[in-house]
Write a protein that binds this DNA or RNA. Structure first.
Lengths: 271, 271
DNA sequence: AACTGTGAAGACGTTCACAGCA
DNA sequence: TGCTGTGAACGTCTTCACAGTT
């Protein structure tokens, strides 16, 4: 969760807004709204005008109860017996997410990955505008990507002020990331999307989200490993008693619990 | 959360492994183990041999109770009064994640982003090896990135078989993603990391994780929006009593809602 | 009849606080 | 003494199932 809030300081500050003009959305809901939005745009383009919770849920890859609960947090924008008005819902979600005007975003680090991000067309269509590109390498300064010229990192503060930038993307090497983050924060940035594989330390009022490709793969690797292990385990059941011993030791105590529910012996085996 | 499991079918299958050679890790724990692993490598390079839960937690950006609970799921690898042996813990985590041998990964779609991913050095050092690059564009076929030649998508099935690939990365345009996924699955791939901004439909036994840059930004945008709104609200408290009224009305009625709350007048105002 | 909105129940995740071990 | 490992308490998220509305 990837995606979750990033409470860097273990500090006690509870995150619920106290004086909001907007509902207190559960974080899990917030993380799904963008999916719904994408699905809604897709449906609108396909010519639909309304959609049932069932239909939208399918399009967004969640179940319908969850979807309805999520949307209910925004207010009542559905019609019983009919479904949701797609245009209306798009507007509501965009409004809650603060996507009404295109937000200016700064991208720091125009290397391999930064280059790709800068060239990504999806930003424009989804509420954002890359307003500035910054890099420490003077050889890259001046280069243009999508009509935006790369400027030197020394101009960071000026650039942030110039475009009133609140959100920045860090795509620098690890060793530069923390310093860049510090400067961004000092310049007034309050949200950071970090592609550098390291933990950023920032003040409490700054939000950080992180994307780490290797971590995603490692999580998948775990599941691969488990699939393989259980396929194996079944095959080896009577063959290798030593494994069983190891298992008991390894699992400490929490094992036993589910011992009787062979839930994961799933579709794989039973074709 | 961001990372989470991707239960595509709402099906009843409970995910806990029953016949594992390994403990039943909570998904939230699995998602954090890679962070711990990175932090541990970092500490090892800095010359440390043991580390307390407090220290490791700080390095990984979590609190120490969570860290201890997470590690306790793997077994008892700490020493009371001392801490954790770094080398030992690295080995344990790698083993649980199935990172013992470098896993072969296929990358489909060598466009802007795919190119950057293919060139990302971090994979090699973190348990993976890009074993194959595939693209539908014949003009890109033959090009070499990091000594791997791009092959034509027609060879997908052959390539997957050739390298016994279980994990694949999709970095194609949206319109190609589902078909590529279908072919990967048919060829035997059981884990997919999807960079295309769309929902993939796959069988139950296949794991999908998704990375969507625009979604990450939209989540940050929400928090920006909220910060701005509450800053605003505070500033306007005695000045505009109408706001309060509007707020109450807003809760239920679709329209009018935001009429009175120009939330985007942000930090600019509050020095 | 068809669908939303939602209380209530349950699963899951986090944090607390301390017993127990080195 | 200093730290881990963990039950118990608490909080959050998901799912169920149905009352309520068009």
């Amino acid at each position: 969760m990837t995606h979750h809030r990033n409470g860097n300081q273990p500090g006690t500050s509870v995150r619920r807004s106290t004086m909001p003009d907007f509902p207190d959305l559960p974080e899990a809901t917030v993380a799904r709204l963008p999916e719904y939005l994408r699905a809604l745009h897709h449906l609108a383009e396909a010519g639909h005008e309304t959609i049932s919770s069932e239909g939208l849920a399918a399009a967004a890859g969640v179940n319908s109860a969850k979807l309805r609960k999520d949307l209910s947090h925004l207010g009542s924008y559905g019609t019983r017996g009919v479904g949701y008005d797609i245009e209306l819902l798009i507007e509501q979600i965009q409004s809650v997410l603060g996507l009404t005007a295109n937000r200016a975003v700064a991208l720091v680090g125009v290397g391999n990955l930064g280059h790709a991000l800068a060239g990504y067309a999806g930003f424009g269509t989804r509420g954002f505008r890359i307003a500035a590109l910054l890099d420490a390498d003077t050889r890259r300064v001046g280069e243009e990507i999508n009509n935006i010229a790369v400027r030197h990192i020394d101009e960071l503060e000026a650039v942030v002020a110039e475009h009133a930038i609140a959100i920045a993307v860090i795509a620098t090497p690890v060793h530069a990331a923390q310093e860049v983050a510090d400067r961004l924060v000092a310049a007034g940035v309050t949200s950071i999307l970090n592609f550098a594989p390291c933990v950023l330390t920032v003040p409490d009022n700054v939000d950080v989200r992180k994307v780490d490709l290797a971590i995603e793969l490692q999580i998948l690797s775990f599941h691969e490993h488990r699939k393989a292990a259980s396929a194996n385990g079944r095959a080896a059941l009577e063959v290798a008693p030593t494994v069983t011993t190891a298992k008991v030791a390894a699992a400490k105590l929490p094992s036993a619990k589910k011992a009787t529910s062979p839930a994961t012996i799933r579709a794989v085996i039973t074709p």
